[in-house]
Structures are given as C-alpha cells and as structure tokens.
Design a protein around this nucleic acid. Sequence first.
DNA 1: AATGTATCCAACCGCAATACG
DNA 2: TCGTATTGCGGTTGGATACAT
Length: 262
Amino acid sequence: MGRKPCCEKVGLKKGAWSGEEDKKLITFILTNGHGCWRALPKLAGLLRCGKSCRLRWTNYLRPDLKRGLLSEYEEQMVIHLHAQLGNRWSKIASHLPGRTDNEIKSHWNTHIKKKLRKMGIDPLTHNPLLTAEEQKKQVGIFKETETSLESTINEAKEEDGTLFDPNNVDVFCIDEVPLIQPHEILLPSSCTNSSKFLQDLHYFPADFEWPSDSTTTVTGSSNLSLWDIDGFSSWDLLINNDDDSDRKLALHSSSSLPKTWF
DNA sequence: AATGTATCCAACCGCAATACG
DNA sequence: TCGTATTGCGGTTGGATACAT
C-alpha cells in the first residue's frame, strides 16, 4: 500500500488566493488556531489543501510578518548568515524576525545574488569571482585531482583487490560553505601596524560587537574578544605581533569562520 | 500603441524529517 | 520497532508587472 497523497487533489483550488479565501483562513486560525493543517481547509470552508493553507499563512498572512523590501541591515545579515549556513533559508529566516524563508530565498535569488556578482563575489562560495584565466587554471587543478584520485583507486585495486568506493573519498563537498581554519589566517608582513590590521578586521559582520579599544595599536601578543549580538557565536582572537614575518591571527572558538569574512 | 523581454515573487512540488499509533 | 501521517524545507515554476524596442 503506497502512501496517500497529502490531500485529495480533485476539486481543490490552486493558484493565487482571493481576498475572500484569505479572510476565511485568517478568521479561522485566529479563532481556532491552525491545529491539524490537513483538517483545516474543510473546517474553514476552503477548497484548498492543508499544505497550501499552511504556506499561505506562514508566508503571507501571519500577523507578525514584516512586509516590504529587506533593509540594508537585513540584507547584510542574510549575506553573512548565508556564508555560514548555506541555503538553509529557514535557519537564516529564524535570525530575521518577521521574515520568512520564502521571502529571503526570493530576495537572495533576485537581488543579493546579482549584487554580490557585481561586487565580484561568488554568491555560492562567498569568495572572489574567478577570471576566465583563473577558471581555466582551476579546471586544470580539478582534472589533476580527478586523475590522481583515479590512479589512487586503481593502485588500491591492484594492491589488495579490495573494493574502493570513490564516494567515500573526502575530496570536497560542494554543499559545505568554505571555512577558514585558525592556521590559515595570515596577515601580510606589509601590514605594518596592528591598528591598520584591526581596522581591516572591521569587515567582520556588522552585528559583531567590537571592544572599544580595538583600533588602538597592539604590541606583542594580545587578546581580543568578539561577540555576536544575537549570541550566535563569539570569538577570541590572539594576535601575535612578535614575529617579523607574517603576523598570525589565531581564533579560538568552537567552530571556524566562513572565508568570506576575510 | 503594440509587442517582446526581463524581473519579481507567491505558490507549488517533491523529498526529508519528525511525530505518532 | 515499524509503518504511516503530517509538517517543514528547499528548489522550481508560472503569472503579473515593468521596462525596452
């Protein structure tokens, strides 16, 4: 026995909602709550499936929704959350009160993506966009990787005759946002003073609070702390100024930072 | 004014996760 | 523990509107 469809499709309305339907849905939910979405349309006198009702309510009719375009601040939030979370629109939406995942997803696809591309940033990876020449190079590197992987597989097969599943080889995952590890963060030696370096670090997302003295010169090894206003995460920075070579910035936290922040 | 093209976004679809008996 | 129902999520579509020719 197969799974029953979520709703009986025959005779149900599809497409744009009328004002009358909206009214019925709002009135019903405000007096009874939504309860079981599957049962709701019948109880509310609507010729829609429960799923359609849920979507209409959560994306459009909920009284706590903000309408209108996203503010500059909200856009920045979306960009930096996307760098951390990828296309997890509902997670991103949960950090923006009054905004829905659908709304953010739409805004991302129609506005932010273009904006980032114009700025020379790849909206997928949040890294600088590659020139045609760099793309060619990368394809070359990828092919090399593929070839070496193939030869590794073949060698393994030849050596012990065991089955080698290439899907289990941890080469890369396109699903993951590239993250920067503490040991990857280097400051160029041309960066002669720490105050400049600390100013540069203000490119951290806007909702990170900076210590009031963060623009002052730091000598020797110093510690700095950053907090996300939402309590989303916090970072401790250890700045090592002792060395003449490239300065090192160490981050002590439970996770890594998206590369787009650097 | 008419037609074609681009853009926007609400709504839909299918799959995955979770709840429940 | 398992199978089914329900809900949530992300990708995609299609109609309305704006803009260009």
